[in-house]
């Protein structure tokens, strides 16, 4: 049942402004449909009309895959520092403060340990609403620690990425997090432990060009934007229109960059199945 029809003007054009009532209703970013908020929430923040996967918080993400009561957060006290005294239109210090005030998080990632359908794993989930999920020293350190902890305790790693890339306010230090996290995953690989990378909307830049693309298995959510360079930068560089669906999960699957696209409702079972199948004590000849 469609509750609100798009208003069509006499000349056939759709009305440009759709007023979205606050609170009870949300407008789907993809199909534009106005949906009862509770209905979206019950559906794991997926649009019931068009299957668009809304961006969700790190906490919600963990809640959807960790067995109830099993998640133990690690390194919650690691906080960002303005090491370079960086100032653009605003001081980085002040940006950090402002984001921390509006967020339950100290930076753009939550890491910890949990069970997924009974299989123990180290988890990391990005908080996109914190400075666009950008990777600075805190994100790099927490990912590195969680991977090192997996090596020590012999379990697999699952990272849910959602990031615009490196955090410019930490300049070269953020670039170096790409090397640091990738090196840690090199150790995990040497330990023979599985790493499943889940790419959610959006996963870009230095995050894609480091740990996000290093999964033993790489999963993406439907329609997630995934790439190295941003679509606008590419369009400006080549001065051409980008192909339909460019840098979307489906496009990456077609081009062989990822293993599979998994809907949110199937994510938990897919992860536990993969982790179990890649565990060293299963199926080894």
């Amino acid at each position: 049942m469609i509750w609100f029809k798009k208003e069509i003007r006499a000349n056939g054009e759709e009305a440009k402004s759709v007023k979205v009532p606050l609170g009870l209703w949300v407008k789907c970013d993809h199909c534009g449909e106005i949906i009862f908020k509770k209905e979206v929430e019950r559906n794991l923040d997926v649009c019931p009309k068009c299957n668009y996967h809304f961006r969700i918080s790190a906490a919600a993400r963990i809640g959807m895959v960790a067995d109830e009561g099993t998640f133990k957060e690690c390194d919650a006290g690691v906080e960002p520092v303005d090491a370079l005294d960086f100032k653009d239109l605003k001081r980085y210090k002040d940006r950090i403060k402002a984001y921390q005030k509006d967020s339950a998080n100290k930076d753009a990632i939550i890491t910890g340990e949990a069970e997924i359908n009974g299989t123990r794993a180290m988890l990391a989930a990005f908080e996109f609403s914190f400075m666009g999920g950008s990777m600075g020293s805190v994100v790099g350190e927490k990912i590195t620690r969680v991977v090192e902890r997996a090596c020590e305790t012999g379990c697999g790693v699952v990272i849910f990425s959602s990031s615009g890339g490196a955090r410019m306010q930490e300049s070269i230090l953020s670039l170096m997090q790409m090397a640091k996290t990738s090196a840690a995953l090199g150790r995990l690989r040497a330990c023979g432990l599985p790493y499943i990378s889940v790419l959610t909307d959006p996963t870009m830049g230095g995050v894609t060009a480091s740990f996000a693309m290093l999964g033993d298995v790489i999963i993406a959510e439907p329609r997630a934007l995934i790439g190295f360079a941003g679509p606008r930068v590419i369009a400006e560089t080549i001065r051409q229109k980008l192909p339909e669906g460019f840098q979307r999960a489906e496009y990456l699957l077609e081009h062989g960059s990822i293993d599979m696209i998994v809907e949110r409702k199937l994510m938990k079972d897919t992860l536990s199945k993969l982790l179990a199948m890649l565990r060293r004590d299963t199926g080894a000849a």
Partner: peptide
């Protein structure tokens, strides 16, 4: 690294990431 359609299609991000990991070992 070049920001272009072919570069993205052939996995620019993966190519960089793979080097970072391999160089560390």
């Amino acid at each position: 690294a070049y920001p272009g359609i072919g570069a993205e299609e052939r996995g620019q991000a993966e190519a960089i990431a793979a080097n970072l990991m391999r160089m560390s070992t």
